[in-house]
Amino acid sequence: MKADTPLREIAQSVQSFVEGKKAQKIKLLILGQNTNDGWLAKIVIYYLLSIVAFLYLQPFFYMVTTMLKSLGDLLDPTVQWIPRTLDWSNLERAFKGLKYPEAVLNTSTIALFGSLIQVLICGMTGYALARLKFPGKKLIFGLVFLTFLIPPQIIIIPLYVIFSKLGWLNTPFVFLVPALFGQGLKSALFIIIFRQFFNSLPKALEEAAMIDGASVFRLFFRIIFPLSLPACLVVFLFSFVWYWNEFYMTSFFLSTDFTPLSLRLGSLETVIFGPNPVPEAQMNNPVTEGTKMAGAFLIVFPPLLLYMIAQRWFVEGIERTGLID
Rank of each mutant, 00 (worst) to 15 (best):
Q15S: 09
M1S: 14
Q196F: 01
G126M: 05
V64Q: 03
E319K: 11
L105F: 14
V174L: 12
L146V: 12
L233A: 06
L233F: 07
G142S: 14
W81E: 05
I162E: 14
L149H: 12
Y160R: 02
K25N: 12
F253V: 04
A294S: 03
P101V: 08
E289W: 08
S239Q: 02
V14T: 07
P151W: 04
G295Y: 00
T288W: 06
G97Y: 02
I324T: 15
M67S: 07
L169V: 15
L201I: 10
D73Y: 06
L323M: 11
I211V: 13
I211Y: 07
F273T: 04
L306C: 09
F61E: 02
P83C: 07
I121T: 03
F314R: 03
F173S: 04
W39Y: 10
P59K: 10
K21A: 09
I150P: 08
L304T: 15
I45F: 12
G317E: 00
G182N: 06
E316F: 03
L185H: 00
Y127A: 00
K25C: 12
M67W: 03
I191N: 03
T288G: 06
P172S: 08
I156Q: 02
F163S: 04
M283G: 10
S255N: 12
Y47V: 10
L28S: 11
L263A: 08
Y243S: 00
L166Q: 02
C122K: 01
M210V: 08
A41G: 05
T321P: 00
E280P: 05
A53S: 15
F173C: 05
Y62K: 07
Y47H: 14
T35Y: 11
L263K: 10
K165C: 07
A128E: 01
T171S: 04
P277D: 08
